[in-house]
Amino acid sequence: MNKIITVLLTAALLSFATYADEAVSCDDGSECITIGLWDIGIAVGYGVKSNPITQFDDIPIYIIPSLAYYGEQWFFDNGNLGYSLLESENITVNMTTSFSSDSAYFSRWDPSNIFVAGGSRVSTELANSSSFWDVDDLYALNFNELEDRKVTVLGGVETFFYTRAGIFNIALAHDLLDVHSGMEAQLKWMYRLAFSQWKLELAASANWKSQEIVNYYYGVRSSENYYWNQAYNPGSATNLSLTLTTQYAINQHWELLFLAHYTDLADEIVASPLINEHSSNTFFVGVAYRF
């Protein structure tokens, strides 16, 4: 049903498809890119992405790549492929793909962890060292090895509204590979400031995940632990996030970076026996080179 809604929504928006408006300016604080040229950058430094999955290691970050190519309507931006249906001064409508952020906690080679050193490891006794849940039943504490939580590609529609109060982004996406057949929706506000060589972007977002996604990544399979397979039946969940991106341009190519990201995990996700944190944090400090 969700897939049908996504397809119908996409088809409806496609009927309004127009060519990108060449008169769109980049003077409203939004980041701009030259059409037809690859934008390649690499940042080196140190950061940590905390992993809320029980006994999974936090993920150290040493290198962050940045790779983007924008055509007249098509674009590729750090793994996201998109097509602009409408682009005007005040509004943009894109069809786009993205990767689910949840799979990154379970896989070292998830797209979100590319170029990130270290990784996660699987524990067979997830709950043994944790007092996160008030459960005395031994059956509840002993976990078999976790099954794979696969990465998937989400596809959907996103809209940007450019206003004096910032940029508002609404996105709706569905699992394209039928890994979990779930949907995600995002409401995001971004505000960008630039003065002298400094650029700051503050973003706040609410990310809704359907029951299928929450259950696929944070639910417990019967082969892993039968007790929790029966006891934990999550519904949909909404995570709340704050992001700060600070850039200081040293010259045309070099810049200093400070990135910070905080996600308040939804209660439905925190209730999972696989989770031992209420939040996930990421920070990175480094120097970046733009080719």
Partner: peptide, 15 residues
């Protein structure tokens, strides 16, 4: 002159 358009993702956003 080379044309530019808005970039929809922060270049350093991998979260």
């Amino acid at each position: 002159e080379p044309q530019a358009r808005r970039r929809f993702r922060n270049p350093w956003s991998l979260f």
